[in-house]
Amino acid sequence: MLSLKTATMAAFMAGTTLAVPAALAQDYPTRTIEVIHSYGPGGGTDRFIRAVGVPFEEISGQSMVPISIQGGGGMPAYANFQQRRVDGYTLMAISPDQIIAHVLGRIQMDSFQPLARVQYDQGMILVPESSPFQTIQDFMAHARENPGDLTVGITNAAGFDDTVMGLWNIETGAEVTTVPFGSSEMVSNTLGGQVDAMHEEYGPARGLIESGDMRPLVVFSDERLPVLPDVPTAVELGYDVTLGRWRAFAMPADADPAHVETLYGLVSEAVATDAYQQIQEQAALQYRSVLLGPDEFQAFIESEIEVYTRVLDALGLTD
């Protein structure tokens, strides 16, 4: 018992002395970087972090591991992130969900130091093969004549999909009803004709598009997708809807600026590697994923907050 106690003490003393050099920037990073995210293990964000993590480890010699803290609109993940020590070894993978939580007053975006926005996806409205709507014009004509009659499957209540469709309703002046599902039920309910259409990103939907089971009507981006040259963008139609799901890294607001700089350098190197680019292409995320550094990303976040506030206000979700 006594020997165990002394051993613990010794280890403990060693701990406090070793902790000091770790804080110096030139020796950074010297251990594993942990990236907290609020999605499931094996999900899109988890895979994104691992995909960056592989080249990151080759470049920096330190690994980068995802820590999944699911549920609660990202609140438990955020709480965990807030409680951790600011030592440069804890990042958070953020997405539009954090912007939404900020607008709903649950979290503060200024508690993040934006590091790098890496992926930027684009959503679409898709209808099943059996749908009477061939083009987005048919679809909108019906929506205008019968407000609220068309149902669009979305994933998660009061989340990103809801915001995109809310903005679409505002911009078009027509009204479609959103029905929140889990992501796989959304697809099956659309295929089965329970709802008229769904909102989904290109990557997960491309198998169904290729087989002809689903028809994309409109894509929410500035430019048409090279793989879908016939599908118009919302912007072309005169509706300014370009919101897309993005994936990014953030550090705590009071992170050491030297750490931010070092880490951004490592991340941008990792993202530029063929290994990462290949994985990104396999998930069909390459079309508008432009890497944004801390400052550009900060500006991007601010513009996002503006749009989301407008939409969520209109949906009656904010107080």
């Binding site: 499931g40 293990p41 094996g42 999900g43 899109g44 988890d46 895979r47 995909a51 992501s183 796989s184 697809v187 099956s188 295929l191 990557g203 491309r206 198998g207 169904l208 290729e210 087989s211 089971d213 994985i279 396999q282 998930a283």
Partner: peptide, 28 residues
Amino acid sequence: ALGIPGSATTAVMLGGLTIHGIIPGPLL
């Protein structure tokens, strides 16, 4: 058959397939 995961575990498998460049869908 459709590229839709029937459960949380198969959703993770679907992600694994995507990494290998296989596009899950009715044509799989």
